[in-house]
Design a protein around this nucleic acid. Sequence first.
DNA 1: TATAAAGGTGAATCCGCAC
DNA 2: AGTGCGGATTCACCTTTAT
Lengths: 274, 274
Amino acid sequence: MKPNTIIQGDCIEELKKLPDNSIDLIFADPPYNMQLENALYRPNNTKVNGVDDEWDKFASFAEYDTFCTAWLRECRRILKNTGTIWVIGSYHNIFRVGNIMLNLGFWILNDVTWYKTNPMPNFMGTRFTNATETLLWCSKGKEHKKYTFNHKLMKKYNGDKQMTSVWQIGLCIGEERLKGEDGKKAHSTQKPEELLKRVILSTTKQNDVVLDPFFGTGTTGAVAKKLKRSYIGIEQESEYITLATNRIDKIKDCFEEADWVEESKENKSLPISP
Amino acid sequence: MKPNTIIQGDCIEELKKLPDNSIDLIFADPPYNMQLENALYRPNNTKVNGVDDEWDKFASFAEYDTFCTAWLRECRRILKNTGTIWVIGSYHNIFRVGNIMLNLGFWILNDVTWYKTNPMPNFMGTRFTNATETLLWCSKGKEHKKYTFNHKLMKKYNGDKQMTSVWQIGLCIGEERLKGEDGKKAHSTQKPEELLKRVILSTTKQNDVVLDPFFGTGTTGAVAKKLKRSYIGIEQESEYITLATNRIDKIKDCFEEADWVEESKENKSLPISP
DNA sequence: TATAAAGGTGAATCCGCAC
DNA sequence: AGTGCGGATTCACCTTTAT
């Protein structure tokens, strides 16, 4: 198990190769199974560029459940007893995922709400603006109480008040959003670095190993490097691996966490590498 | 089926007596199955008065799932095709509940986050402050698209901007919280009226029938009456029924929804009856 | 150059009727 | 069930173009 590598391959197969009790933290951003059918247009008649990637399509709940049970079971096996796991999802999938995690014996520590500061509105006025995604933070089991949680650090980060389970963070847009040669977004679901900063800062120590089984464009690896953690990524698509590799190679500014939190009081963003 | 009544009895048995396709809205606040084993103490050694009621205890996930499947199945049967259902829960149970609802064919419209403005801190510093509960708002099924949603009204209520799925509302405390003769809270999980106001205002029309299968101290009935909707409550415990009956009888000030929304721009609280 | 206006876009389960 | 069409529907923020 070599740290700071991206493994190309099928998520479940590659997880099976990793040894028991070897990982300090897992961050997983699995397919959401969005079940989009028809095109959606804004009031000005422009088309919404929805998630139509093949990797997000599942034939049924049963198929999605089988997939999630398999990768989550492996995640639990390779997690250290002091480790924890984060899984992010939307209402489309998080109730399937949460149910499976409970069945596998994971113990929910928090359901953190990512409260988007700039969500896309509901154009037709048929629902409330869907302004959140949910992160499930879990230990390996009820009996594993000695997990890493940097309470004081997060309190300091939050202006000396205990950080709550609601995180107000904007979408990943602008300079931070990776673009392809055509100027379009390179990945449909790139997550903001601020989200990963809070995850990694709160639940790992320096030099810990962070695993991301759905590495995508490598946000987890990029933030892990900036915060002096090790990372292991698993990703199937070679285009994403190329993007992630370049992105992480460019990073030169790495931080002692204490220094970074001190700085972050004024500016909570880590520098984006050029 | 007589409107504006409280039915005493077992939730599932009483639901079975109600006719198909007869209810406009269901609000359900089921037991959370909190699994609190040890008492929780504050740093100053005072004991936190948690939820330790007998009705909140289930032997296993399987038992809880069986219970929820039964009452949710009946709810779906009695709901009109134009109706919707709200179920509130915390991370302890909402992933069981959500999974069951999906399996029964409910279609999730929003997962609304109740973002508590005054949550109880995590005294031990072992987790993030748990600042939310989740409300699942669902239609009877994907094919039932003509559900009631008062989009314009909620937009007006929200300062002429579309209301999002995050609702910042305080806990039910102070004058609004019902007390027993001993001065202690009369019910361990009384919900704030503001929560029910948003639920009823957004997803019913005047004179619609609102059913609450876990009526408790009758917050649903109280708000329904204030907003000129009908209610049906089901509740097992006679003490709660007495409290709820007295509470609802006291209400004299009822509102046309348009008037109330106009007023609510300055003061979002409906008057608490004396 | 500076400011304003116009255009683009984000994990989206987003209409309803007639034929 | 599928298609076609009239009509109602959006927020924050970034980029590009115009003044």
